[in-house]
Amino acid sequence: MKFKAPVILMILMATIMTAFVASPSSSAGEPWSASQLLSPADLAKTLNNQKIPHPVIYSIGPQAVIKESIDIGSTRDKANLEKLKNNVAKLPKEANIVIYCGCCPFGNCPNIRPAFELLNKMGFKNHKLLNLTQNIKVDWIDKDYPVNY
């Protein structure tokens, strides 16, 4: 009976650690930090509130599904990466920028890393990656969040 509390504590710690390791949105070794991941629910909430400023949103994947987002195209293509570069060049470095792809889970996505690295390199301070852990269908469209069509 004595060791019950430590055992429970260990199980709890193991569970928490597993959750962090297995998390699809883990930021270890990525060009973004955990705090630069924006939850879809938070962006949807912002877009649904017309009284607060909205970020500049760029689609860097298959289609500009999210309301107000600007279609850049897949940034695995250099031409589209250049398009993103030209588009953000006019923004102040403090601008709130959100990029998203949503083609597939982050591990398979060829678009998010080149785009985020570009924004890092250009010296932006408030750029975020939308945390679409599965894809744009499951994490945005199916949740009835605001869309462009």
């Binding site: 599965q134 744009i136 499951v138």
Partner: peptide, 16 residues
């Protein structure tokens, strides 16, 4: 029609 394709709905596709 991307994810708006009626076929995606008919076949209940969630991911490719």
């Amino acid at each position: 029609k991307f994810w708006k394709s009626p076929v995606a709905k008919t076949y209940s596709i969630k991911a490719l």
